[in-house]
């Protein structure tokens, strides 16, 4: 490149240091807005799954019902794990804004571990249901249950892989505008999944417990 790094920076992607790190490069605000809009589409995706679940919730075809299946301790542990991971994820962004690389990486690792714990509990919950004969093929209700909760679980698993990839980049390049943007965005994703889970907790599990 003919230009020195400094010149290039000044001329195009103005690094306006009066702004938060993740908004300093030209593409920071674009990516963050784009990701918010993506979250809105993902919201509709889950809305369709919730709608399907609610319509065929009672179509159990003589098989197990939600009341038979769901047990408070299991899904409460999952909820607490995910709520806590959402908290630790927000701490990661907090530490990033304090330019504390070690703590940022630390909180990201804690978040990933809590996420893995969540997925683990969810898998064991699914395995237990399948063992009891409550498989996806048994009834429309169970198809909808496994698909809705499983789609959320798949999102969380993807988030874990994504976060690990970002941890690696933070270790390598430190806290700089690109990484700041990535950490902020993966944080948004993670909190969004927490919101979706709260609705799974309320609409799927609590409905089962209350009815």
């Amino acid at each position: 490149m003919a230009l020195s790094n400094n010149e290039a920076k000044q001329r195009s992607s103005k690094h306006d240091t009066s702004r938060l790190l993740e908004y300093q490069r030209h593409d920071g605000p674009l990516n963050i807005l784009g990701f918010w809009i993506f979250l809105a589409t993902d919201l509709i995706l889950f809305a369709c799954l919730f709608a399907t679940y609610l319509v065929i919730r009672t179509h159990v075809d003589g098989g197990p019902t939600d009341k038979d299946l769901f047990e408070i301790p299991g899904f409460t542990i999952e909820t607490l794990l995910l709520l806590t991971s959402s908290f630790t994820g927000s701490l990661a962004v907090y530490e990033m804004r304090n330019f504390n690389k070690k703590r940022l990486i630390g909180w990201l690792i804690v978040t990933v571990l809590l996420g893995i714990g969540f997925v683990g509990f969810e898998i064991s919950e699914f395995v237990q249901y399948v063992g009891d004969g409550a498989t996806m093929q048994r009834s429309a209700f169970l198809s909808a249950f496994f698909t809705l909760v499983g789609t959320h679980g798949a999102h969380v698993s993807l988030g874990i892989i994504w976060m690990i990839s970002i941890i690696r980049q933070v270790v390598k390049f430190g806290i700089e505008p690109i990484n700041a943007r990535k950490v902020f965005i993966v944080g948004l994703y993670w909190h969004f999944l927490d919101i979706v889970w709260i609705f799974i907790f309320s609409v799927v599990y609590m409905t089962g417990v209350v009815s």
Binding site: L45, C48, I56, H59, D61, M136, Q137, S139, A140, S143
Partner: peptide, 28 residues
């Protein structure tokens, strides 16, 4: 996203034998 879900659920029906839209086991 609604198309994504509609097609995905139909595919799950076909591949995994689920019952979202079948005539059996409570599908609609």
């Amino acid at each position: 996203p609604a198309l994504t879900v509609a097609l995905a659920l139909l595919m799950i029906d076909r591949i995994a034998g689920a019952h979202f839209f079948t005539m059996l086991h409570g599908g609609n």
